[in-house]
Simulated assay, not measured.
Amino acid sequence: MQLIIMRHGEAGWHTLDQERSLTDAGRRMVGTVGHRIAESTWRPARIWSSPYIRARQTAGILSEILNCPVEEKTFITPDDDPGACLDELLASQVSPLLLVSHMPFVGVLSTLLVDGHRQGIPFMTAQAVLLDMPVVGPGCADLKDQFLP
């Protein structure tokens, strides 16, 4: 399975966390990363998005660029347990899959899949990493590429 894990684009701070929207700069950053993914050999078949507005906006921009559908997933919000996502990845037949979420979730999920622990690595806004997993599980992924704004 190939999995692209991406943090949403830059968002404003003018409202509740779940309702924060992308800034103009955030939209541009997401577009830049979306085009870099489109130019790679790792085009996703589907996008999973957190239900938070900034993640849904990020996924919408990516969907237009990459011409793939978006599914909203409630188990990939900032403080969710990556174990629940791991269960869903095990059940999924979609590959490559692009997952749009938040810190600390994207950092914790990435380190769980690559290193087998949950300490978490930092992600810039709109940063994405590509993981290749012959088997979905903790410590089973190799970091193959990253896409920066």
Rank of each mutant, 00 (worst) to 15 (best):
A11Y: 03
A11T: 05
G12T: 08
W13F: 13
H14V: 14
T15A: 14
L16Y: 06
R20V: 03
S21N: 13
S21C: 12
L22A: 05
L22N: 02
D24A: 12
D24C: 06
G26R: 04
R27N: 03
R28V: 12
T32M: 07
V33N: 05
R36T: 11
E39P: 09
E39V: 04
S40W: 06
S40N: 11
T41L: 04
R43F: 00
P44V: 02
P44Q: 00
R46E: 13
R46M: 12
S49E: 09
P51Q: 13
I53N: 07
A55R: 07
A55C: 13
A55T: 07
R56H: 08
Q57T: 11
A59S: 15
G60S: 15
E64M: 10
L66K: 02
N67G: 00
N67I: 01
C68W: 02
P69D: 12
V70A: 09
V70F: 09
K73S: 08
T77W: 00
T77D: 03
D79F: 15
D80S: 15
D81T: 10
P82V: 10
P82N: 13
P82F: 06
P82K: 11
G83W: 09
A84P: 00
A84T: 14
C85L: 11
C85K: 09
C85F: 11
L86S: 03
L86T: 05
L86D: 02
D87M: 06
L89Q: 11
L90P: 03
L90Y: 01
Q93E: 10
P96F: 00
L97K: 04
L99Y: 06
L99N: 07
S101F: 08
H102W: 08
M103W: 08
P104T: 12
V106D: 11
G107L: 01
G107C: 02
V108L: 05
T111I: 09
T111F: 10
L112K: 09
G116C: 10
G116E: 04
H117I: 12
Q119S: 15
G120F: 00
I121P: 05
T125I: 01
T125G: 02
T125D: 02
A126H: 01
A126R: 00
Q127S: 05
V129F: 04
V129Y: 01
V129P: 02
L130Q: 00
D132F: 00
M133C: 15
M133A: 15
M133Y: 06
V135N: 06
V136T: 15
G137P: 15
P138A: 11
A141M: 05
